[in-house]
Design a protein around this nucleic acid. Structure first.
Lengths: 105, 105
DNA sequence: GACTCGTGTAACGTGACGCTTGACGCGTAA
DNA sequence: TTACGCGTCAAGCGTCACGTTACACGAGTC
């Protein structure tokens, strides 16, 4: 009874929202600018920023280097959203397997 | 100077190793047994256990439900390894973008 | 009006990868 | 030898991030 963290009440924000709302304004950059700086296509970054695509590990690396907050930050952002979606939308129901820790009823 | 966590010195273990070394023995189950319980094919679980495949979100859900430690645990296991690999093997070098926080040299 | 930017998005091809199915090799018991 | 359980491999499929190219729209500017 420990590893089960509660699901957030609301769907975690897409990494792209963060880029759009916080990063780009504070850097005074356009999507086109940032895409060029990151070495990705404009279309690719645009779709990411608009939430139409999820973050790859490689994209997370680029963002982490560009903004100085590391790969992990971005991957976790995406991960939280992925987990939320998975828990919400799936009908997977697997029965709990009891580890044999001595006391077997 | 905060979000940059250090990379582990050694490659984080593959989730499959954990299943093979700890879970399966303590449950006294075979790969075939567990695959059936999880509702996936033998081959799929076999490749996972042997480190030839990484964990999908859906597989993480199944494992999390079966072992009672939640989806997040398994996804994080995989994430740590993915990040480690990405940092080690990639030649990506993006210049840091300075946020304009008042003091501009 | 025409021109330039910045943007969103669709179509196409590509490569990566998780998954299933079917077949194979190996060990063990009848 | 035959039969069975187990693990693994190979082929095929679907999904998806990505680049490229192209088009359409709005806001400025001339």
């Amino acid at each position: 009874m420990s590893a089960e963290r509660e699901l957030p009440r609301f769907r975690p924000p897409h990494p792209g929202e963060y880029i759009r709302d916080d990063i780009l304004p504070s850097l005074e950059m356009t999507i086109t600018d940032l895409a060029e700086h990151l070495g990705v296509s404009r279309a690719s970054l645009s779709e990411l920023v608009n939430g139409n695509r999820s973050l790859s590990i490689e994209m997370a690396q680029r963002l982490g280097q560009a903004f100085g907050n590391g790969t992990r930050f971005w991957v976790q952002l995406q991960m939280q959203r992925d987990i939320w979606d998975a828990e919400k939308n799936s009908g997977i129901k697997i029965k709990l397997l009891r580890q044999r820790s001595g006391k077997a009823a």
